[in-house]
Structure formats: structure tokens, C-alpha cells
Amino acid sequence: MQQQNMYILNYRKETIGVLSNRMPFSLPFYEDLQEWSLDDLSDTLTFPDRSDHPDAPVLDRVTYS
């Protein structure tokens, strides 16, 4: 299956960035971990980001402990 692009949305569901390992100017993501929960119907993608990329500041960084 070919990997699709993922879009970074703001709280109004407007596209503010693109995650892709194929598009040259998009924010790349590697070593990603996707988790689904049927209990609360959540879908979480965790990945290290490149802080030197122009789109990196739009990411909401949340740390759970």
C-alpha cells in the first residue's frame, strides 16, 4: 500500500501543514507509531519531528506520562 499524505489541521479544521515523505517541501516523518483505541475512538500518530523545518512550529506537542 502506498503511503498517503497527512494534513495538519488547526482547531477550525483548516489545513496548516502537510506531512509526507514523498513531497520535497513537506514535513517528513519517520519512525512513526500509530495507535488506535476503540474505547474512546481515538487515533494517535506519534513521531519525532525535524525542528529545523518551516512547518515544525505548527505542530501541537503534547507529552503524556
Results as ranks from 00 to 15, higher is better:
35 E>I: 15
21 N>G: 04
63 T>L: 12
18 V>D: 01
31 E>F: 08
6 M>L: 15
51 S>D: 13
62 V>G: 00
30 Y>I: 03
31 E>N: 14
9 L>C: 09
45 L>M: 14
51 S>P: 11
20 S>Q: 07
23 M>K: 15
41 L>R: 09
38 L>A: 09
57 P>R: 06
58 V>G: 00
26 S>G: 03
25 F>G: 07
21 N>T: 15
20 S>A: 10
58 V>I: 05
15 T>I: 15
16 I>D: 11
44 T>M: 04
13 K>C: 08
25 F>R: 12
43 D>A: 02
61 R>E: 12
38 L>I: 06
43 D>C: 09
8 I>L: 15
26 S>T: 12
59 L>D: 02
17 G>H: 08
9 L>R: 08
46 T>G: 00
63 T>C: 01
43 D>Y: 13
20 S>G: 02
57 P>G: 04
59 L>M: 12
3 Q>Y: 09
50 R>L: 10
62 V>H: 08
8 I>C: 04
11 Y>K: 10
15 T>C: 15
58 V>T: 08
28 P>H: 01
1 M>P: 07
46 T>F: 05
38 L>V: 07
45 L>T: 15
32 D>S: 14
7 Y>D: 01
24 P>Y: 01
13 K>P: 00
10 N>K: 05
25 F>P: 00
62 V>P: 00
40 D>P: 01
27 L>Q: 06
39 D>Q: 14
24 P>Q: 11
63 T>H: 09
27 L>N: 01
51 S>F: 03
22 R>E: 10
20 S>W: 11
4 Q>D: 03
58 V>C: 03
58 V>D: 04
63 T>I: 12
41 L>T: 00
50 R>M: 05
49 D>P: 02
65 S>W: 09
14 E>G: 00
60 D>C: 04
58 V>N: 11
44 T>D: 04
14 E>S: 08
4 Q>T: 08
5 N>Q: 11
35 E>M: 09
65 S>A: 07
34 Q>H: 13
19 L>A: 01
41 L>Q: 11
62 V>M: 06
42 S>I: 02
13 K>N: 15
22 R>L: 06
64 Y>D: 03
3 Q>S: 10
20 S>T: 12
57 P>L: 03
18 V>P: 04
51 S>L: 13
54 P>F: 06
55 D>W: 07
60 D>L: 12
43 D>I: 00
53 H>A: 05
55 D>N: 08
29 F>Q: 04
56 A>W: 06
15 T>S: 09
9 L>P: 03
31 E>W: 02
18 V>H: 14
14 E>N: 10
23 M>Y: 09
28 P>G: 07
17 G>K: 11
28 P>F: 01
61 R>P: 01
36 W>S: 05
13 K>I: 05
10 N>C: 03
4 Q>Y: 12
7 Y>V: 10
38 L>P: 07
34 Q>N: 13
4 Q>H: 10
2 Q>A: 09
34 Q>R: 14
29 F>L: 10
22 R>W: 05
37 S>K: 04
54 P>Q: 05
30 Y>V: 05
31 E>C: 02
60 D>N: 10
28 P>Q: 01
5 N>F: 08
26 S>L: 07
62 V>C: 00
25 F>V: 07
2 Q>S: 09
4 Q>V: 10
62 V>F: 06
61 R>V: 13
